[in-house]
Design a protein around this nucleic acid. Structure first.
Lengths: 144, 144
DNA sequence: GTAAATGCAAATTGTTTGCTTACTG
DNA sequence: CAGTAAGCAAACAATTTGCATTTAC
């Protein structure tokens, strides 16, 4: 893997975000600074970086691939309503969970895990009180 | 949700499998018996069944959606080498893990979780001893 | 100077949708 | 019969690929 300006920029951008963007979201952001950056390059590099375990390709039930600049194992929650994926840190029993998972990794010989919780996020739960289900499905326009 | 012959067949087929087929894998299998079954119908029904939580739409890092006839929360392992997804039951510390996750669901208000472990499956590890890495990437032709 | 990476566009793949006809209750 | 669902084909979206050019070592 040679050095490349584009790859650096992609990685830096991804790392600067706490959300979990798709390839085209990253592309859109970077295009301001690098107008000639092509979407294909973004795809190629994200794939490459994930293969080298520099970043994480998320396991999600969604229709687009999402990436995470934080390659350390941690947990995600997918909101049933808005489709956003959020990091769960500092959730109750987090330490306990971590401990069990470390043991499981060791005993199975696996190198990583991804945990996706499904539910309705705080933000959407808040909304639901005011206007109850105006739209049927939130979809996944916003990635989180 | 009305009753439908096709939906029954799709569900039965999915439940009869321990692997986690894609829509077109299911379609291919069913087509023997139901030659006029269309792929669109398979997609529509899988989506519907998953929405009603009768089956599980898997969260995976792969490029195709995979479904699981077993809607009860359980764990999966994705093989880095062959791409197959396997159920992990009876793994060490399973009970412990379950217990923590139940607590976490309760305290976060989530209704489900999916855990995907990543590593190399027993079968591939076996092969690797005999012929070390003849093909670079196993891809994900075989779904698990 | 050779291998790797880019940009661009075209191709491919997976999934969804529109519409007409056929079931189900 | 009124509402769902199916079949089929066309549309769509996301991702990958081929190829000529550029960049890194």
């Amino acid at each position: 893997m040679n050095h490349s300006t584009q790859r650096d920029a992609i990685l830096a951008e991804l790392r600067s975000l706490t959300c979990h963007p798709t390839a085209d979201e990253l592309h859109a952001r970077l295009r301001n600074r690098m107008p000639r950056l092509s979407l294909g390059t973004v795809y190629r590099n994200l794939e490459l970086l994930a293969e080298h375990r520099v970043i994480l390709k998320l396991a999600t039930a969604g229709s687009q691939k999402r990436f995470d600049g934080n390659a350390d194992p941690h947990h995600h929650m997918r909101c049933d309503s808005c489709g956003r994926i959020r990091d769960m840190h500092g959730m109750p029993h987090d330490g306990e969970l971590e401990a069990v998972l470390v043991k499981i990794l060791a005993s199975t010989g696996c190198h990583a895990y991804q945990l996706e919780l499904a539910g309705v996020c705080d933000e959407c739960r808040g909304k639901a009180v005011q206007r109850t289900n105006r739209t049927k499905r939130g979809g996944e326009k916003n990635g989180g």
